[in-house]
Write a protein that binds this DNA or RNA. Structure first.
Lengths: 259, 259
DNA sequence: CGAGGGGTTGACGTTGTTCAATGAGCGTGG
DNA sequence: CCACGCTCATTGAACAACGTCAACCCCTCG
């Protein structure tokens, strides 16, 4: 819980942290790629420049051509695109340990924006440094590539979620995904975790209106499956919720036994 | 049109083509990464083993651990997952020139299946060859990585499509995406192209029932925007269809000016 | 104390599903 | 040749899911 709370403490913007803590990123790939301390050092050596963003601020805008990628150290962010009628669709949620725009390294121009959903702190990795690292250590290329491919896998599961599941199952699935991901980076407190999205933003993830999200959350609460209130998710009946959501975490690639 | 028809001719399975034509793949990355003839040769030299699949056959099953990736030479395939209630969600359509499971190189185990929607021919690229190529030519890593990141970008647009657009706009968007992609690899005939999906499969892409797809196609036909019949899509009013679908092809990364 | 953000609830309309029936096209075997 | 089975497309009517509009609540912050 202390780690959760710490993400609300605002560091000074544009500060420089000589040795940022990238352990959460290492934790997300560890089960698949044995990230040696030496390899972590290589990466960490290139990451010094940190930056903070206020809730609602965009780290990257759709169409931006940026020369660095950002590793999220604290806070929640979202990949999103704006619709022509002024709405917004969120494609993925990002939590500490996630490389939020490593996609921009091979893509050069980003097709989507990255929006801070809470106060966020990131550390930058410049693209020229990625190129140098990869050239000297090809295995790092595969690890970074892997990390972006997990994003693609999450995208596919979201397509499945939005396209094929019932309303309650969709919300349940979203909340379970975040529980699993928070656990891996040490941000879960049992079956509870910090979740700074309001009902409107949950709707933007799932293709629902805020009112409908409200009704669905009410049903999940009344069935004593999960409670979402004041930026906290508390899963009451994990088995029941997973069954309702048809949840199988293998798409997150968080352990070695995944199908 | 001849190229379209040729995809129905069945080559013998497990045949060996010394120098497969990978020009369509080169065409899909050309605008972003100037793929030199020498680099194309490097790739082609490693690709000799071809294979064919019948419609409905799976190239890869969810959870498979395969040692090679497949470049689609002929036919339509789909990335898909099965739902618990026996339905199926399609996450992406693949056409000639697409690397259908390059994702499995960094992921090792695939989170989704690849299903042939028509008769398909692929050529294999073994993962050990990818590793060797990348080690010797780091630029190729970025090109292959790029190709998988375009898949991720397409996934994001599909999330947007399914989550935020109206029924008619969803179908229109899907048909326009395929038109653009077919054009780049020379498989479009003006504003028409071969499209071997039936209404059930279109529904599996968009989260609709077959009956609803039928009704939406009828409306699009009556509005003289697009006609879909007997495995052919004919776009009658491209501007009108693009406006209806709120279609912006920049997410496909098919030209250099993309936002 | 007023404004604003977020949550809650109800009535009603639209969108999409389900169930059911029908027809068109095509290959197969009698 | 026709009858038959099969896939795919088409259409209608009842129903469920979800959006829209509107009102109201609570809390916080200035």
């Amino acid at each position: 819980m202390t780690q959760v709370e710490s993400s609300r403490i605002a560091p000074s913007p544009h500060s420089s942290t000589p040795r940022p803590n990238i352990d959460k990123f290492v934790a997300t790939v560890r089960k698949r790629y044995d990230f040696s301390p030496a390899e972590a050092e290589l990466l960490r050596d290139r990451m010094t420049e940190t930056q903070s963003y206020a809730p609602g601020e965009y780290l990257v805008n759709e169409g931006d051509r940026i020369g660095y990628s950002s590793l999220l150290l604290e806070g929640y962010a979202a990949r999103s695109k704006d619709t022509s009628d002024g709405e917004r669709q969120i494609m993925e949620l990002q939590i500490p340990g996630d490389f939020v725009d490593l996609h921009s390294y091979p893509l050069e121009v980003l097709d989507h924006g990255i929006c801070a959903l809470s106060r966020c702190t990131i550390v930058k990795l410049h693209h020229e440094d990625i190129s140098a690292l990869i050239e000297a250590h090809p295995r790092l290329a595969r690890i970074l590539w892997f990390s972006t491919m997990v994003d693609a896998s999450i995208h596919r599961e979201w397509i499945m979620n939005i396209g094929s599941r019932s309303g309650k199952a969709r919300i349940a699935h979203l909340l379970l995904e975040l529980l699993c991901r928070c656990e891996v980076v040490g941000l879960a407190d049992g079956d509870a975790y910090w979740f700074p999205l309001n009902q409107t933003q949950i709707g933007e993830c799932l293709g629902f209106t805020q009112m409908h999200v409200n009704r669905l959350l009410k049903e999940l609460r009344e069935q004593e499956l999960v409670v979402v209130r004041s930026q906290q998710v508390e899963v009451l009946d994990r088995d029941g919720l997973e069954k309702l959501a048809d949840f199988n975490p293998s798409y997150l690639y968080l352990d070695e036994r995944t199908a």
